[in-house]
Structure formats: C-alpha cells, structure tokens
Design a protein around this nucleic acid. Structure first.
Length: 270
DNA sequence: AAATTCTCCTGAAGGC
DNA sequence: TGCCTTCAGGAGAATT
C-alpha cells in the first residue's frame, strides 16, 4: 500500500518525465474514485505546463500556472508514464496526456483521489491540518511528546494519525514500533522521553531506508516505470505472523487494533 | 477535544 | 473446478 516512501518514489520517478511539459488532454474513464474526479481538471489544465511536482504527506501536488491538482493513491493506486497510444487496461481510470506520453492512474480498489486544489493547494481542506513531514525539520521527539500529552489513544494509531505526523501507514507504524521496542497498545501519553526519542528516530530510519530501497512492493503497488520496489524483504514484523522475531526468535504475534492488524514481538516490545 | 466506528472497493486467499 | 466467505487497508466522515 502506498505510504510515504512509495509516494516519494513515485514522485521522483515521475518528475523527470513530466516536469516542464505541457498537458494536452485529460481522459477520465471512471470518475467514481474516493471522491468524484474534479471536473476542473479537464476545464483548466489543457495547454498548461507542469511547473512543479511536490509531495505533502501521501499527497502528490501537481502545480501549474492556473492552479494545482492533487493525487492521492489510496491503498491500491499506482501511477505510470506510458507512450501515447498504449491501450488502457482494467482499472486504468484516468489519463493525463503530456504530448507524447500519458500519466496513467490505475487503482483496482478505487480509494484514490484526483482533486482540483486551486492556487494555494497547501490550504486545501485535505492538506491544511496535516502534521509535520517526518523527514523534514519540525518533526522530532519533542513534537510527539507535546502532541501525546495526556492522550490515552494507543501509540500505534497515534503515529498513524496524519494530524500528528504524515506518511506513516500500517506497515511502517508496525516496523517503527518494533525498531523502537515499544508495544503498539501502550497509551501515547504514557511513553517517556527516551522512548519518544527512540520512536522518532525509528520512524525516520524506517521511512528513509524504504525510500532508498525504492518503496515497498506489496500487492498492488507498482513504481512509475512498472518495476516493483524491493523493501518488502527487509520488513521485520509486518506480515510475519508466526515467524521468529529477527532479534530474539520469539514468534511474531498478529492482533487487531483499531480496524488494522498490528504485528509485534511480545518479548522485544514492551 | 478525544476516541471509536463506519465507509468506500475489489483482488487474493482460504474453505468446502 | 468453482463458488462463497473473509480479509486487507488510507483516512475522512460520522458518531459517541
């Protein structure tokens, strides 16, 4: 599922193909994604040049002179750049044509979003309340401590909350907590300063390594050029139910938590 | 304000 | 071989 590293991998893969090129057309074959695909895309974008391709959390921001649009990949979305004329396959819901190439969105589960965001995209309702980027200044243990003060919410959903920090989904939340040796069901407000130090560092390391590796490949995620990422083999706990802990050999447990699966080593994580 | 539950969707995997 | 059921999940919206 695309998390921050996968979205950043997509951004880096797409940028050299699309930056500075002019949009020549929009084709929406399936407008019913998480929200209806914004009609403004077809209205405003043809003839405009892509001036920048940015990322905020798991959102990609495409900037043009007349305004910006957002793409969120949901959990099964992927973007690819293809030569014009390649026929769409099942679940290829939308093309944005850039002259001789097409930016194509595929999303079997249709949780993706393609939305117009106007001239100040960071003020869009979906972006304005997002927490700090974990790989940029503004995110550290002190920030987490401040936000966690007094909260009884479990630490795992806490770090998956995009208002606390962006980019951490189920996979990397599990991995970061394992690295930090913290049990996912602990109350966020109960962790001490040292634990938050370890956790902040673990989040940064896990996301950085995943970006270096080119994004985790799981089920539906495909990179912009179609090659899968290869971080999956480096996961310590996610999806390893019943397998031995890489550190102590204790069997990894899986348990439901807030409508998601948590994976943990009951010995290493306290 | 904070916590919890619901919701969208369909492919994959498991059971029989 | 095939049909049915269950699970997976990003994250906003609705509810408590």
């Amino acid at each position: 599922m695309p998390e921050l590293p996968e979205v950043e991998t997509s951004r880096r893969g797409l940028e050299p193909h699309l930056l500075g090129r002019c949009i020549t057309g929009i084709e929406v074959r399936q407008p019913k994604l998480r929200w209806p695909v914004s009609l403004e895309l077809a209205e405003f974008l043809p003839g405009e040049r892509l001036d920048a391709l940015r990322r905020r959390g798991k959102y990609l921001i495409f900037d043009t002179r007349v305004g910006s649009f957002l793409i969120h990949l949901g959990m099964s979305g992927s973007l690819r750049v293809l030569p014009a004329g390649v026929l769409p396959e099942k679940h290829d819901h939308l093309d944005i044509a850039f002259g001789g190439v097409n930016l194509r969105l595929r999303d079997p589960r249709r949780f993706a979003a393609v939305l117009w965001a106007g001239s100040e995209p960071l003020k869009h309702s979906l972006l304005k309340s997002l927490g700090p980027e974990p790989l940029e200044p503004g995110f550290d243990a002190e920030w987490l401590i401040k936000k966690a003060k007094g909260r009884r919410l479990a630490i795992k959903p806490f770090i998956m909350d995009s208002k606390i920090l962006v980019g951490v989904g189920n996979i990397y939340a599990n991995e970061a907590l394992f690295r930090a040796g913290i049990h996912p069901e602990r109350a966020a407000g109960d962790l001490n300063k040292a634990e938050y130090g370890h956790l902040a560092q673990a989040i940064v390391e896990v996301l950085s390594k995943a970006i270096e590796a080119g994004g985790t490949s799981l089920r539906d995620f495909v990179r912009e050029d179609g090659r899968p990422g290869y971080f999956a083999q480096e996961l310590d706990v996610y999806g390893r139910t019943g397998l031995p802990c890489v550190r102590c050999g204790t069997l990894i447990e899986q348990r439901p938590q807030a409508q998601r699966s948590s994976y943990l080593c009951p010995r290493c994580q306290r």
